[in-house]
Design a protein around this nucleic acid. Structure first.
Lengths: 120, 120
DNA sequence: TTGACGCATTCCGATATAGGCATATGATGG
DNA sequence: CCATCATATGCCTATATCGGAATGCGTCAA
C-alpha cells in the first residue's frame, strides 16, 4: 500500500503546506482560482488541483460567478482535527522530561514534604 | 516531486491514522513497542516504523529499559497544529451560508472602531 | 558462550502524490 | 458562431510512502 489518499480526510488534506496557505487566504473571503495561484506563487493548474483536494474533503466550496469560480472556506471539517489535537493539550503544557515518572514523583513529594534536587 | 515526507512536520506525521492511535495510547503512559503493536493490531516492524517517524518529528521520545524500549509521548509538537487549526475556530462556529458577508461586516466593523465582543 | 527475547532495519512491490506542461471544458462578449 | 478569458484535466516523471517478510543487533539469563 501507499500512503493514504490526500482526500481521505482533513488530516491528510492539510498535511500539505500549500493547501494550508490556501485555507488561510480563504479566511479573508471568497477568491477566484487565479487570484489564489498568484498570491501563493503557484501555477493555476496546481492551485486547481489543491482546490480539488480541499473540495473533496469538504474544506472549501465553490460558487460559479460568471467566468470565475469563487472558492470559499468551509472550516467545519477542521473541527474534528482541532478536537483530536486538543485531546493532548494537557500534555504539552507540562514541563516535559520524563513526564510519567515526574508526575508520580510530584504526587509523592508533595505528601512527604519539599525535598529538592533530583535533576541530571 | 512526491508528497512531502511524513517526517517533515507534525502535520504530516499525524496524517496517518495508526500513528494517531499510537499517540492516543501513549497518553496513558510509556509503553514498549510490542505492547503498542499488539494493542493496535499491527506487526512489530510496522509499529517500529511508525514510532521512528513520530520520533523524528519529536512527538515521542524513547528510553531504554533493559531489553525493552519504552516510548513516551511528547506532545509539544502538537501545539503548533492546535494553534493553526484553532485559527479557524470562529469559522466553523458560524452558520455558514453568510460567511463571506460576515467577513465583510467584520472588516467594516474594525474600520469603524474596535468594537469588540461578538464572540460566542 | 549460547539461546531467547525485544526491537530496528532492510529489501521488495504497489500506489499516489506534487509539479510541469499541454490541452480540454466553460462561460462571456461581440 | 468565434475569440477570449478562467478553470479543470490529462499525461509524465521522480519520489516517498505503507505493508509484508526476513534479518540484523543488543540485552539478559543460564
Amino acid at each position: 500500500m501507499a500512503r493514504a489518499a490526500t482526500t481521505s480526510d482533513a488530516f491528510n488534506a492539510i498535511a500539505e503546506p500549500q493547501r494550508r496557505e490556501i485555507l488561510v487566504l480563504l479566511r479573508g473571503g471568497e477568491r477566484p482560482v487565479t487570484d489564489l495561484a498568484r498570491n501563493l506563487g503557484m501555477t493555476q493548474p496546481q492551485a486547481s488541483k489543491h482546490l480539488r483536494v480541499l473540495r473533496e474533503v469538504g474544506l472549501v466550496r465553490v460558487r460559479g460567478a460568471g467566468k470565475q469560480r469563487l472558492y470559499g472556506l468551509d472550516a467545519r471539517g477542521l473541527r474534528p482535527v482541532h478536537e483530536w489535537v486538543g485531546g493532548f493539550e494537557r500534555f504539552w503544557s507540562e514541563s516535559f522530561d520524563r513526564l510519567d515518572e515526574y508526575v508520580q514523583e510530584l504526587k509523592q513529594a508533595r505528601q512527604e514534604g519539599p525535598h529538592d534536587g533530583d535533576d541530571q
